[in-house]
Amino acid sequence: MSSLALAHTRYLLLEQLRVPVGLIAGALFPAITMVAFVVPFAGQDPRAATMATGSLMFFGAMSGALIGLSITVAQDRERPWNPYLRTLPAGPAAHFTGRILATLVTTLVSTVPVLVVGALFTEATFTAPRLLAAVGVVVAGTVPFMLLGLLIGYLMAAKGAIAVSQVLFFPLAILGGLLLPPAILPDFIQVVSPFTPTRGVAELVWAVTARTTPDPVALVSLAVWTALAAVAAGWAYRRDEGRRFS
Rank of each mutant, 00 (worst) to 15 (best):
T196I: 03
T106H: 07
T226A: 06
G22A: 08
W81I: 05
L148G: 04
F245E: 09
I152G: 05
I162E: 13
L172K: 02
P129G: 06
V164R: 08
R238M: 08
L178I: 02
A93N: 09
A173T: 01
V114E: 03
G136C: 01
L151P: 01
W225H: 10
V135H: 12
L12A: 09
A27L: 04
S246E: 05
I100W: 06
A36D: 07
P80Q: 02
F145N: 03
L147G: 01
S246W: 08
T213I: 00
Y11G: 09
V135M: 13
A27N: 04
G160W: 07
A52V: 01
T209F: 05
R10W: 12
H8P: 00
F96S: 10
P83H: 10
A229M: 15
G200D: 03
G234Q: 09
V224I: 14
A94V: 04
V117Q: 04
L180G: 03
G22Y: 03
P92S: 12
A7M: 08
M146T: 04
P89F: 03
P92E: 09
Y11W: 13
I189A: 09
G68H: 01
L204S: 00
L13N: 01
G160M: 06
M57L: 12
M62H: 09
S246M: 03
A236Q: 07
T212P: 10
G176I: 03
A134N: 05
F37H: 08
V137D: 11
P92D: 11
G160F: 10
R79P: 00
Q44A: 15
K159R: 11
T213W: 11
L6Q: 02
E241V: 13
P216A: 06
V138C: 12
P46K: 03
P216N: 05
A134H: 08
G234D: 06
A202I: 04
G54Q: 10
T198D: 00
L172C: 07
A90M: 01
I189W: 02
E241S: 07
Y11K: 11
G234F: 05
A5Q: 01
Q44T: 09
F96C: 00
M34D: 04
R10L: 08
A229T: 01
L28D: 11
T9Y: 00
G200T: 05
I100S: 03
A52R: 02
I24D: 10
I162L: 13
V138W: 12
E203W: 02
P113I: 02
L168R: 04
F245Q: 09
P181C: 12
T142Y: 08
P129T: 04
Y237R: 14
F37T: 07
F59H: 07
Q44E: 15
T107A: 14
A90S: 14
F195Y: 15
A183Q: 15
T106D: 13
L180A: 14
A210F: 00
A27V: 00
M57W: 14
S3A: 14
V139T: 10
V220I: 12
V191M: 13
V217R: 15
L85C: 12
Y237W: 14
L204M: 13
G68S: 11
N82R: 10
G136H: 10
Y11M: 13
I174V: 14
W225S: 07
W225L: 06
A202D: 07
A5N: 02
T127N: 14
A133D: 13
T9R: 00
V224H: 05
P40C: 12
W81N: 10
A218D: 07
T33L: 15
F121E: 12
